[in-house]
Simulated assay, not measured.
Amino acid sequence: MSAKMVIQELAELLKLHQELNKQASLKVEAVKANDVSTLGQIIKEEARLIRAAQQADAKRVKEARAFMIEKGEGEEDVTIASMLPLVSHDETVVLKKLQRALLKEVDQLKEQNEQNRELLEESLRFVNLSLDLMVPQAEDVHYTQPHQKNEQTELFSRSVFDSKA
């Protein structure tokens, strides 16, 4: 038996990670443009791709274990490195190439997700700052002595949202 099925599943994983990277790039643009509807669509597509990647990885693990069992090796801790001595030269070249490409895509996805996280945090800080500027603070409106209390002070000390509603 060859490692053909493992190679096919690795190729599928690579393709899915490339698609995830494209979606992550689109997400950056949607966040920068403050396009919430597009961002929602991108997140749905990402969720679909993640599920597909999980399924492809499960298939890869299954095929790799089956390959190792057929070759008379243990089925635990099946990695590409553990498969290399058992495959032909051509398959070794393909497996190594796919492994490098997949690692590159995963690293790129990590960087992209970190950038997206930072952009979203910055957007959240901006929203919070905007809300702080829109809601007047009691001490900004007028000053009263700490021991004096009146209705107007109580009015401004309440939250913008009525929690009893």
Results as ranks from 00 to 15, higher is better:
residue 112 Q to E: 10
residue 99 Q to P: 01
residue 82 S to R: 03
residue 155 L to R: 15
residue 151 E to F: 08
residue 81 A to W: 03
residue 66 A to F: 02
residue 155 L to C: 04
residue 136 P to Y: 02
residue 106 V to W: 12
residue 82 S to V: 09
residue 140 D to V: 03
residue 114 E to C: 09
residue 153 T to E: 13
residue 153 T to P: 01
residue 50 I to K: 06
residue 50 I to Y: 01
residue 58 A to W: 02
residue 77 D to W: 00
residue 48 R to W: 03
residue 138 A to D: 08
residue 123 S to N: 10
residue 105 E to M: 12
residue 148 Q to S: 10
residue 45 E to W: 03
residue 64 A to P: 06
residue 126 F to T: 13
residue 136 P to F: 04
residue 66 A to L: 08
residue 115 Q to R: 08
residue 133 L to Y: 07
residue 118 E to Y: 11
residue 96 K to E: 02
residue 65 R to H: 08
residue 147 H to D: 15
residue 106 V to P: 01
residue 42 I to F: 08
residue 138 A to E: 07
residue 76 E to V: 07
residue 79 T to E: 11
residue 81 A to K: 00
residue 126 F to R: 12
residue 86 L to M: 04
residue 47 A to V: 07
residue 40 G to D: 11
residue 67 F to I: 04
residue 104 K to V: 02
residue 156 F to H: 07
residue 107 D to W: 00
residue 153 T to F: 01
residue 77 D to N: 15
residue 85 P to Q: 04
residue 120 L to S: 07
residue 129 L to T: 15
residue 154 E to S: 08
residue 48 R to F: 15
residue 87 V to Y: 00
residue 135 V to N: 13
residue 71 K to M: 07
residue 43 I to Y: 01
residue 151 E to N: 12
residue 92 T to L: 02
residue 150 N to R: 11
residue 120 L to I: 11
residue 83 M to C: 04
residue 80 I to R: 04
residue 76 E to Q: 11
residue 145 Q to D: 15
residue 153 T to D: 07
residue 75 E to L: 09
residue 144 T to H: 10
residue 151 E to M: 13
residue 116 N to S: 13
residue 135 V to T: 12
residue 126 F to S: 11
residue 65 R to D: 02
residue 147 H to K: 05
residue 41 Q to F: 06
residue 123 S to W: 00
residue 66 A to M: 09
residue 94 V to R: 05
residue 103 L to H: 14
residue 43 I to E: 09
residue 151 E to R: 13
residue 76 E to T: 13
residue 87 V to L: 04
residue 140 D to W: 08
residue 149 K to R: 13
residue 91 E to K: 09
residue 56 A to Q: 07
residue 79 T to C: 11
residue 45 E to S: 12
residue 155 L to V: 09
residue 67 F to V: 00
residue 62 K to C: 05
residue 54 Q to V: 03
residue 102 L to F: 06
residue 41 Q to M: 15
residue 63 E to P: 02
residue 56 A to L: 01
